[in-house]
Each structure stands twice: as C-alpha cells, then as structure tokens.
Simulated assay, not measured.
Amino acid sequence: MAWRPLTAAELAVGCQKGVCLWTVDTNMHITRSATQAVFLKHPGHCPITSVQWNANGTWLATASISDTDMLLWDVDRQQNTPLRRVGPPCSLLKWSPDAANLFSATVGNVFRVWSANKKWTPERWTINCGVDEQIFASGASPKEALKIAELTKFNAGRREVGGEPQVLAWGGDGGHLAVMFKDTPEYPSYVCFQSKTQRNTDTGLTIGWSSGRIEYFPFGSM
C-alpha cells in the first residue's frame, strides 16, 4: 500500500483483483473511508504485488506477479499506460526521488530503470553470479554499479549486525539509506522515511519492529 503525496489522506492498496483507492476522513475519531472506494483494474493485471506513487502524486505505478507489463495510472482519469517488456513478471517498483526514473525488479535476474525523460525507454540490467565487482551488468551503455556500503556481519557491542539485506528505504532527499537484514533476533517489519516539510524540518525514520514496538528516529541536521 502507498499514501498519495500532497494529499490529506488518499491511500492506494494492492489487492487480489486490482487496486483500491480510499480517501480517509482524518477528522473522525475512528478512521474510516469518507467516500466509496475507487477500484482500478486491468485484464490480466492481478494480483497486485507493488504500488508506488511518484513524488507529486500524479502517477501511480503498479505491478502484478502474473503480468509481464507494468501500468502507469492517471488515477484521476482512471486510465493507464502499459510499460511493456519481455521477460519475467515484475515483483517490486520504486520511483527515484525526482520522479524522473522508475526502477522495476523482476522475479528473475533482471531489473530495469525506466526514464520518463526518454518516453519511458528502459535500461536493462542483469544480476550475474561471480565476484562483487561484477554483480551488475548493463548492455545498453558502459555503466558500472558501485558498492556504497559494506554489509558484512560484524559485532557492534553486544549485537551482531549486517548480513543479507531484505529491504532498502531511501530518505526523501536521498541523503540517508535504511537497510533491513534477514538474520536479526528482533527484526524491523516495516521502515519508511518522513520527508521534510514546512512544519517538520527534520528527516525522520519510522521503524515497526517485530516485537510490536514502534520507533521514531529523527536525524535532525545530520
């Protein structure tokens, strides 16, 4: 599910047969839908496995584990534009902070980066087996994927941290990266960043732990 940016409380939820859109009335003591939910569906595009709004909420990207195409929805018009490709179905979508690029992972060893400035022309990358320096390869141009963090396990006081990453989350300004690991005694079930606004001048990370504890970590002027 994903909250629509620059709106009071509009929520997109991927479902078994499509995408449900709710507008939540935040003035009620018991949160509920203020209007009847809008349902977006497209033949063969279900169940929905990933929903992602772009930075200004004008486009909603959706992916289905049973469809090789992604869809870009103009939600207000309830119309979609398919991004077609050949290969395994898409499993995960992520927008770049400036909404100029859309990342799509697949259930295979291929991922793509789609450029809005090039009429959604994709750049295809593959994940190879081998040493770290040759993990990624792109046939479109002589680009190189660089390692930005060492995630090998190490002892930090009484705890061992690091290992195989499970989820990554960028801060809105691109200055912070949160990493969730698979092998931890108490693991984060969900992480997301709260971007800076006129009322909130700090970047904050919200963490939902497997124990049920919710933690808010402000970065301040870091």
Rank of each mutant, 00 (worst) to 15 (best):
F136P: 06
R84F: 05
L146W: 11
I48Y: 00
D132M: 09
E123R: 13
D74Q: 03
G57Q: 00
A2R: 00
N80I: 01
A149V: 14
A178V: 06
L60D: 04
S189F: 05
S64W: 03
A116P: 05
L40W: 02
R159L: 14
C90A: 12
K17S: 11
F219E: 06
M1C: 04
C90I: 04
N155L: 14
L71N: 01
L102F: 07
T206K: 08
A100S: 12
C20P: 00
D25M: 08
S96H: 02
P89S: 04
T184H: 13
P185S: 13
D69F: 07
E186S: 15
C192S: 11
A37K: 08
A149I: 12
M70H: 02
K41A: 07
L21T: 01
S104D: 04
A12D: 02
I65C: 07
P188W: 10
Q166S: 12
M222D: 10
C90T: 03
S33F: 12
S64G: 00
A55G: 02
W120T: 03
V38F: 04
E123Y: 10
R77P: 01
R4S: 07
A169R: 09
G175K: 13
W3C: 01
C192L: 10
M222L: 14
P88T: 09
M70A: 09
V113G: 04
Q52V: 02
N54I: 04
F39Q: 02
L177Y: 11
T7E: 13
D25K: 06
D76Y: 03
K17A: 13
R199I: 04
A105H: 03
A145Q: 07
N155G: 07
K147E: 13
F217W: 12
G208T: 05
L21P: 00
L93D: 00
L102R: 00
V131M: 08
H176F: 15
G208R: 05
V191K: 09
G175W: 05
E186P: 01
P122S: 09
T106L: 08
D173V: 02
L11F: 10
Q198P: 00
T31N: 05
L205W: 08
S91M: 00
Q16Y: 08
I30V: 13
R112F: 07
T106Y: 05
S66M: 13
V113N: 05
S66R: 14
T81V: 11
T81F: 02
A12I: 09
R85Q: 14
F103D: 00
N54F: 03
